[in-house]
Nucleic acid binder design. Structure first.
Length: 576
RNA sequence: GACCUGGUAGCUCAGUUGGUAGAGCACCUCCCUUUUAAGGAGGUGGUCCUGGGUUCGAGCCCCAGCCCGGUCACCA
């Protein structure tokens, strides 16, 4: 983008950056390419050495990584090298890496021209220092990439206590690359995230379930109730929406004859952002033919137990202040039972008027647009949800709030649906899927009525999806698991931003321009008319307020267009 | 969207009824061959988020705005 390029061109360098650019130039003058093109072949990784130290001791290794700290002591130095696998100390001795008289590689390149953050390669032998620290004695040093910006300096003391941590949330999210370099725990979070998704894939693939991809750009944003992002396709000249869910597409595939399909889907919802909501987020949805929601509950227990073990090595977890166990089985509580337990009211079979009465009594706010489903959802959400810390299936939701769910086998007012609650939050949502096309059309029409009544979350009708159901979909159970939320639980993070590499942020403000502003131009013209001029006279001529005067004069002196001279006769300003 | 915190050096942070902008680390110069939050001596470095205002004088007070975070509201 043009504006960004302009910003870079007009960027004012800090003294630290200028020094590094000068070092870069000097490296080139010494005939060292600071960005060499050749492959750099390493023989092992830091983690390998640390975890098999006896095997490596005395042997030669070649490593590459970022220099994270440096302690120079005359003719010898220690530095910390960090590669993708870990950190370890390297020992650099002048006479080991240099044979020439001037010892250029040590005295000039290592001591003067390299900086913290530079990427280097080393060849040397593994040894242990007198103090017992595992290290590599460097015999050869190669510059692999010069770093032009100083990294934050984060130090860890002998007790493992971190000093001057790079902790500003805004900087960490905007410059995640820096966060990943200096904050090791951040990297661990994201490695764990991949372990979790890998664990889920393994679980499904072993069962022969098929991983698929379905459209993100959808003409009708179906499968959930949420405000979509809208975009436009130029060639077709039609609106398209970023998907809010992929449910209806996966069910079409079940119609098409796949027994089990799943997708890790980025979904998009144009709604508020907070600690647990990002406009784009990841949901794993799975559909399995010939199963029901009871089967799905059993599978979910098994899956989560495995995910906990694969990612953390245990089913027992600390989430915030709570101890949570993912050991199966999990209790199954009908939603109306939960409401009875936590409010004292049995709302089974109540109509909307009676429900509003109950809401009023227990202090839950309601409005006219709310139907039975929404009222029950509201009661559960504000009075019950937060009580379910241990994994608990809340089951048998009312029909009104579940337009894609099959009617309950014993009670036609309810549906075969469950939500899995963990730590007081929803983690998964699953149904015995509605496969009766005639009833599905009726449910959609009920949603349309809700929408006309003012419910802006009611679902859109997808005619093609109904057509697919009319060809016949086997009885099927489906589930959606919020992956970001699952990762939050498994890594004990309370903010979704901590488990997304690049959480959504408002743009940074523009870098200051080197262009003169209008006030500065005016002042410079005045100055050019009479130069040198007594400072106070120029101030009076400008007519600027004190603050504006001060800022503007500082502005043009900073650009080196004018300077102030102190003489016996007073302060004079002149053009340079 | 509402309310509350905060925004000062590359990083982490101080900053006194409003009176010339500070510390630690980093950086620069010098000393130092198994150190480790290495150490010792000296030094450089600032759009105090932005724009107005009050004042002889604003990092600090007032007004408007921007950005992060938190709480609530909204929301699968």
């Amino acid at each position: 983008m043009q504006s960004i390029n302009l910003n870079y061109n007009s960027m004012q360098l800090t003294p630290l950056e200028i020094i590094r650019r000068e070092s870069l130039q000097k490296l080139r003058e010494l005939g060292i390419n600071p960005y060499p093109p050749e492959e750099f072949k390493t023989t092992t990784s830091i983690k390998q050495i640390i975890s098999n130290f006896e095997e490596f001791e005395g042997k030669e290794v070649i490593l590459a990584g970022r220099m994270m700290s440096r302690r120079i002591m005359g003719k010898a130095s220690f530095a910390e090298l960090k590669d993708a696998s870990g950190r370890m100390q390297i020992y650099i001795n002048r006479d080991e890496i240099c044979s020439d008289e001037e010892a250029v590689m040590y005295n000039t390149v290592f001591k003067k021209l390299l900086d913290m953050g530079d990427i280097i390669g080393i060849r040397g032998t593994v040894f242990k220092t007198n103090v017992g620290e595992e290290s590599v004695k460097v015999k050869e040093l190669t510059v692999l990439s010069k770093s032009l910006r100083p990294l934050p300096v984060v130090k860890t003391d002998a007790d493992g206590k971190i000093h001057d941590a790079f902790s500003d949330a805004e900087l960490r999210y905007r410059q995640r690359y820096v966060d990943l370099i200096v904050n090791d725990t951040v990297k661990e979070t994201f490695i764990k995230r991949t372990k979790i998704t890998t664990s889920i894939r393994e679980f499904f693939n072993e069962r022969g379930y098929l991983e698929v991809e379905t459209p993100i750009l959808q003409p009708i944003p179906g499968g959930a109730a949420a405000r979509p992002f809208k975009t436009h396709h130029n060639a077709l000249d039609m609106p398209l929406y970023l998907r809010i869910a992929n449910e209806l597409y996966l069910k079409r595939l079940i119609v098409g004859g796949f027994d089990a399909v799943y997708e890790f889907a980025k979904d998009f919802r144009n709604e508020g952002m907070d600690r647990t909501h990002n406009p784009e987020f990841t949901v794993m949805e799975l559909y399995v033919a010939y199963k029901d929601y009871n089967w799905m509950m059993n599978m979910t227990e098994e899956l989560l137990e495995k995910v906990a073990l694969d990612s953390n090595g245990t089913t027992e977890m600390k989430i915030g202040k709570n101890d949570v166990s993912f050991k199966a089985p999990y209790p199954r509580v009908p939603i109306l039972e939960a409401i009875r337990i936590h409010t004292g009211f049995d709302v089974a079979g109540m109509n909307d008027i009676q429900l509003k009465e109950v809401c009023k009594k227990v202090g839950v706010e309601v409005d006219e647009t709310m139907g039975v489903g929404k009222l029950i959802d509201e009661l559960f959400g504000s009075k019950c949800e937060h009580h379910y810390i241990q994994p608990t299936f809340i089951i048998d939701y009312p029909k009104e709030m579940s337009p894609l769910t099959k009617k309950h086998r014993t009670n036609p007012d309810l549906t075969e649906r469950f939500e899995l609650m963990v730590n007081g939050k929803e983690l998964a949502n699953a149904y015995s899927e509605l496969n009766d096309p005639i009833e599905q059309r009726e449910r959609f029409e009920d949603q349309l009525k809700l929408s006309e009544k003012g419910d802006d979350e009611a679902m859109f009708i997808d005619q093609d999806f109904i057509r697919a159901l009319e060809y016949g979909m086997p009885p099927t159970s489906g589930i959606g698991i919020g992956i970001d939320r699952l990762v939050m639980f498994m890594t004990n993070n309370s903010s979704i931003q901590e488990v997304l590499f690049f959480p959504q942020m408002k743009p940074e403000k523009k870098a200051p321009s080197v262009e003169l502003n209008d006030d500065e131009k005016v002042l410079l013209e005045l100055l050019k008319a009479t130069t040198p001029i007594l400072l106070n006279n120029l101030k009076i001529k400008s007519g600027f307020s004190n603050k504006k005067w001060d800022k503007t004069l500082k502005g043009i002196t900073k650009h080196n267009l004018a300077k102030v001279n102190a003489t016996d006769a007073g302060l004079f300003v002149e053009v340079v």
